[in-house]
């Protein structure tokens, strides 16, 4: 089966399939998180009072720094691949996975602290939306980790067979990962600061 434009770009669109596909997927993700942000606004506007300063800014800021750094290492993993520096690519991808795991560990301690204080989702609407938004975002992080581990492990075989296709896949992974980072950039002020 020969499906065209898996690697090379189609002349009239200037795109390969995976690039268009991942962007369409991200478009739907924008609408998913859009609906949740919309929910946040509606609950906040409708609430008699909205708690502020419930969350630890330190935790939030640390996780922001971690995710931004992981975005940089992700783009470096892709760029190294473009420059045919295989070792560097592996290194940066591994660091990205490490940072992502670090993020989740932080998140776990943060959740544990709140649950310890009985601040569970049913405590109030603020914690409800906090757990939902960060939980869904956390699932996206987990998804990203799975994909990156795949490309560090069995998925890496493709790099020998078809290096260009592998690079495209890493680029798509990167686009997804940056999007996850981008969502957090909005989640941080919305939940932790305001």
């Amino acid at each position: 089966m020969e499906i065209p434009y898996i690697v090379e770009t189609r002349a009239d669109t200037g795109l390969n399939n995976v690039k268009l596909g991942i962007w369409l997927f991200l478009a739907s993700e924008v609408m998913l998180f859009g609906a949740l942000f919309s929910t946040y606004i509606i609950l906040r506007v409708g609430a008699p009072e909205w708690p502020r300063g419930e969350l630890s800014v330190i935790f939030g800021a640390a996780n922001t720094i971690i995710l931004i750094s992981s975005s940089v290492t992700m783009v470096m993993a892709w760029a190294s691949l473009k420059m045919h520096a295989w070792g560097k690519h592996r290194f940066y991808l591994l660091v990205t996975v490490g940072l992502a795991l670090f993020f989740l560990v932080n998140k776990f301690f943060e959740y544990a602290e709140h649950v310890g204080k009985h601040e569970i989702p049913s405590y109030n609407t603020f914690f409800a939306i906090y757990y939902t938004l960060t939980g869904l975002h956390g699932l996206h992080i987990v998804g990203g980790i799975v994909v990156m581990l795949y490309f560090l492990g069995p998925g890496a075989k493709l790099a020998k067979k078809n290096p260009d296709q592998f690079t495209n896949r890493i680029e798509a992974t990167g686009l997804y990962w940056h999007f996850v980072d981008l969502v957090w950039i909005f989640l941080f002020p919305v939940l932790y600061l305001l």
């Binding site: 929910t39 409800a128 939902t132």
Partner: peptide, 21 residues
Amino acid sequence: FPPLEAAGVLQLMDRVAGTSF
């Protein structure tokens, strides 16, 4: 469809986690 997926998750939270979205 994504907004309904979000809404579905919220309703699921209401039922399972006892939230009040």
